[in-house]
């Protein structure tokens, strides 16, 4: 079964390698959209808006989404997709609105205009009850962990299970301890969040996001604040859990394959983990596509960003 999951990843890559699709897709794409209101075309010159097909339906899709906070325009006509059953990355310089994107997906923020679709349903249009149900599809790791300060680690991780399932104490204990051990916090189960380091809180938040085995998992910078070894291990853990969940979903013939979305600055983990990469800058996608094509992109901005060099279009301002 595990091989099956692998070959699935392989499939994606095979479709990529099939032809010189990169060039043709760019050529076939609709006419280049104009810059957002109030911005010069010059600012968006690196945005090729090329989207290389993933060959999958979209679990989440942003359609011309605009969002401003006062005078700061964060999303400026964003079109972005997270393909189903893949590990997607959202990459982008700090402060471009990656966390804001994530909050739009779960209905914590609403777009000023445009739409956000989850499995084809519009999140901003959902009545409260439906939004409530929809959120159960999601597991979310917040950028700072967002553990509940009044509960110890165990209770934090058990919280979603107690909230949404009828599972007994023994079963909850087993699931929670398995997840805590996976992230190396088995021994800290009774500690309170304020006694933990930032990286430990992050890992606990990771465990909490996983316990319900949701359809869509969003990780907001799971690796920031972790040491390099743990970052690498976390990347592997993400892949392994994704594989397991794909198997499980296939066995149970779930309607949707599990979709992961990882927001990160860490190019190394992007290279290791990502099936699909979205590069976000100035409120729009610069270029998006399966990892292989993105890593071979000709776009100077993408090249600079994915290799983490100081030379290139991206500067401090």
């Amino acid at each position: 079964m595990r091989d099956d999951a692998h070959s699935q990843r392989g499939d994606v890559k095979r479709t990529d390698g099939k032809a010189v699709s990169r060039v043709s897709v760019v050529d076939e794409s609709p006419p280049r959209p104009g810059p957002p209101e109030g911005a010069a075309d010059e600012e968006y010159r690196w945005h090729s808006y090329a989207v290389h097909p993933s060959g999958r339906p979209d679990a989440v899709r942003f359609v011309d989404t605009y969002k401003s906070f006062g005078r700061s325009h964060v999303l400026r006509g964003l079109n972005m997709a997270l393909p189903e059953g893949m590990v997607s990355m959202i990459l982008g310089p700090s402060g471009t609105g990656k966390s804001v994107c994530i909050k739009h997906m779960v209905g914590l923020l609403y777009p000023d205009s445009g739409d956000v679709l989850v499995h084809g349903r519009s999140v901003p249009d959902m009545p409260d009850d439906e939004l409530f149900e929809m959120r159960k599809k999601f597991g979310l790791l917040f950028q700072d962990g967002a553990l509940f300060g009044s509960m110890n680690l165990f209770d934090n991780v058990a919280f979603p299970l107690r909230q949404h399932t009828e599972k007994g104490d023994d079963e909850i204990e087993e699931i929670v301890m398995r997840r805590l051990n996976e992230v190396g916090l088995g021994d800290s189960r009774t500690r309170m969040p304020n006694e933990l380091s930032g990286g430990m809180r992050k890992r606990a938040g990771f465990a909490r996001a996983l316990v319900l085995e949701p359809d869509i998992l969003l990780f907001d910078e799971p690796d920031s604040g972790l040491d390099p070894v743990r970052t690498a291990l976390l990347g592997e853990l993400i892949l392994e859990i994704h594989r397991e969940m794909i198997e499980e979903a296939k066995r149970k013939q779930r309607e949707h394959l599990p979709t992961f979305c990882v927001v990160t600055h860490d190019i190394m983990s992007a290279r290791r983990v990502a099936d699909y990469i979205n590069v976000l800058w100035k409120g729009r996608i610069v270029e998006a596509g399966p990892a292989e094509e993105m890593l071979g992109s000709e776009n100077p901005f993408i090249r600079q960003f994915l290799s983490g060099e100081s030379q290139g279009p991206l500067t401090m301002d």
Binding site: R135, F142, D144, A146, F148, Q163
Partner: peptide, 17 residues
Amino acid sequence: GARKIREELDALEVLGV
């Protein structure tokens, strides 16, 4: 306020509370 800043309130909401 402290819970809001730590995003605990957002987390609660996403967890269906």
